[in-house]
C-alpha cells in the first residue's frame, strides 16, 4: 500500500530505569486512504500517547511511521525525517478534537481558512477552499458566523472542515462525538466517512462512544500499550 498511514513496531517509553513506563509496546497499524478506523480502549491504555506520536507532538521511542508514501519517522534512521514538525502537522495531519476548539475570535470561514493561510496560500484562495469544505459539510450558510453562534454539531462540522483544509493524508480525531447526543454523534461519523471517501483521507477515530463503535468496519483495540485489530460491524448509518 502506498498511501494512508502505516505504523510498524511503534513504542513509547516514559521515564527511565525503575520508574520507566511503556505506554506503547510494538504497535502496528495500517489504514488505507479513504478508510475510517476506530481506536478504542480503556483509560490509560495508551490511546492518547499513540495519537500524540501520530500527530508528531511527542517522539516515539522506537518504530517507524509512514504517511502516504513518505516515511516520517524511523527510530533506526535518526527519528523524525523532517526537523520542522510544525509544518508536518500543518500540511500532512488533520486534527479533530473532543471539543471543537475553534478560534473564538475568527469567524467560521477564517477558522477553516487559517490552515491554508498558515501554509502560505493567499487569503482569497484559502477562503475559497474553506467555503468549498463548508459547502461539503453543509455549514456554508454559517460561513460568516462566530463560533459561539453555532450549535455543537455545527461547531464539530467546522472543525472537521478545518482538519481537511490542507488536504492531509490522515486525520486524527480524538473523541469527536463525546459531547454530542446519539443523533448528532452518528451524523458526525457519517460526515467523517463521507469526507474520508471524498478526499481519500485516512481517519483514525479515538473513541469510548458505544453509539458509534458499531459503525466502524475496522477497529483497533488498545490495551496496556498493545493494539489488536479486529473487524467491526460496519453498521450502516441511516
Amino acid at each position: 500500500m502506498d498511501d494512508g498511514i502505516h505504523i510498524e513496531g511503534l513504542s513509547k517509553r516514559y521515564g527511565a530505569g525503575d520508574t520507566a513506563v511503556d505506554a506503547l509496546k510494538d504497535v502496528n497499524m495500517r489504514i488505507a486512504p479513504g478508510e475510517v478506523v476506530g481506536l478504542v480502549g480503556p483509560s490509560g491504555s495508551g490511546k492518547t500517547t499513540l495519537l500524540k506520536c501520530l500527530g508528531a507532538v511527542i517522539e516515539p521511542t522506537r518504530g517507524r511511521m509512514t504517511l502516504g508514501s513518505e516515511v516520517i519517522y524511523d527510530s533506526e534512521q535518526g527519528g523524525w525525517k523532517t526537523p520542522d514538525l510544525r509544518a508536518l502537522r500543518r500540511d500532512r495531519i488533520g486534527f479533530v478534537f473532543q471539543a471543537p476548539y475553534l478560534i473564538p475570535f475568527l469567524d467560521v470561514t477564517d477558522n477553516v481558512a487559517l490552515l491554508p493561510m498558515l501554509a502560505g496560500r493567499t487569503n482569497s484562495a484559502s477562503r475559497a477552499r474553506a467555503l468549498e469544505l463548508l459547502q461539503a459539510l453543509d455549514v456554508a450558510h454559517r460561513a460568516g458566523a462566530q463560533p459561539s453562534e453555532l450549535s455543537g454539531g455545527e461547531q464539530q462540522r467546522v472543525s472537521i472542515a478545518r482538519a481537511l483544509a490542507n488536504q492531509p493524508p490522515v486525520i486524527l480525531a480524538d473523541e469527536p462525538t463525546a459531547p454530542l447526543d446519539s443523533e448528532r454523534a452518528l451524523a458526525v461519523v457519517r460526515i467523517l466517512n463521507q469526507m474520508a471517501s471524498q478526499y481519500q483521507t485516512a481517519i483514525i477515530v479515538v473513541t469510548h462512544d458505544e453509539k458509534i463503535i458499531p459503525t466502524f468496519k475496522r477497529i483497533y483495540h488498545i490495551r496496556d500499550g498493545r493494539t489488536v485489530e479486529e473487524a467491526g460491524e460496519g453498521r450502516e448509518i441511516s
Binding site: R86, R89, Y101, I103, L115, L118, A119, R162
Partner: peptide, 16 residues
C-alpha cells in the same frame, strides 16, 4: 491557552 495550544498544534509559528 487552549486556543494557543490548538494554534501551535495546527502549525502556527511561534513568532506568529
Amino acid at each position: 491557552i487552549r486556543e494557543i495550544a490548538v494554534l501551535k498544534l495546527i502549525g502556527t509559528r511561534n513568532r506568529t
